[in-house]
């Protein structure tokens, strides 16, 4: 049954995920090309110095891209479920409803994480060729909360999207904006280092919110 749910989510998300993969990798690649150009013009030593002394990471452009990718993934996945209350069909299937909802979220998160993993792999491969290991870690640690924000954005957008009442959706949206703020507090390397595992747990815990919306949908809540 879980395989069938993954199959349904795959049908909804496959083209979007391909697009998200191309766009996010292209933006990451553009950031790296800019850094490459700076190294060519000013020399690697100068760039290293700037990175150490001024906390520059050269991938600032990427900051909100994973968040946007996550939000759009949730919209692509859950808008068709809410269109004409299609979610009723899913919840009527002979499978525990919580398991089904979390399987849908797990499918979305898995595809998003796969997309982000490709981004990280590209960045790691290129940065390792031109920067020392410490600076590579600096750049990736600065990017990590942004990518976690992408997963959080996905889970929060799913929460908002699955909510059956518009007034509550607006309220959820405001709360979601405050929650997402936590991922962009300090855009400097290693700022989140000790906090990253907790931030990851906090991100996963956000998946519970979607069930609140589904429970409200099941209870017939409406404006």
């Amino acid at each position: 049954m879980l395989k069938a749910i993954f199959y349904k989510e795959w049908i909804k998300l496959r083209w979007y995920m391909l697009l998200a993969l191309i766009v996010t990798t292209a933006v990451a690649g553009y950031c790296l090309l800019r850094a490459d150009r700076a190294i060519e013009l000013r020399g690697a030593g100068h760039i290293w110095e700037v990175m150490v002394l001024k906390d520059a990471v050269f991938i600032d452009l990427l900051r909100f891209v994973p968040l946007l990718a996550g939000i759009l993934a949730a919209l692509v996945q859950f808008m068709p479920e809410m269109q004409r209350k299609c979610l009723k069909l899913t919840l009527h299937l002979p499978c525990p409803q919580q398991r089904m909802v979390f399987a849908m979220l797990a499918a979305g998160v898995a595809m998003l994480v796969a997309c982000f993993a490709v981004n990280f792999a590209v960045m790691t491969a290129w940065l390792s060729a031109v920067l020392p290991a410490e600076l590579v870690t600096n750049v990736l640690s600065a990017a990590a909360p942004w990518y976690l924000a992408g997963v959080a954005g996905y889970l929060l957008a799913a929460w908002v999207c699955l909510e059956p009442a518009w007034k509550r959706r607006v309220l959820n949206l405001a709360v979601a904006a405050l929650i997402v703020r936590a991922y962009f507090l300090a855009p400097v390397p290693r700022a989140y280092n000790d906090f990253l595992p907790w931030l990851a747990l906090y991100t996963l815990a956000l998946s519970l919110l979607a069930w609140i919306s589904v429970a409200r949908f099941k209870a017939g809540c409406q404006d």
């Binding site: 049954m1 395989k3 069938a4 199959y7 349904k8 049908i11 909804k12 068709p80 269109q83 004409r84 209350k85 299609c86 009723k88 069909l89 009527h92 299937l93 002979p94 499978c95």
Partner: peptide
């Protein structure tokens, strides 16, 4: 269960939807 307006998963075709539902029964 038949929903008002014969709602079904619009993003699937007739082969995909049969394949999807058959797994549950």
């Amino acid at each position: 269960l038949l929903l008002e307006g014969h709602v079904q998963y619009q993003f699937m075709n007739i082969v995909q939807i049969e394949k999807f539902y058959s797994a549950f029964y």
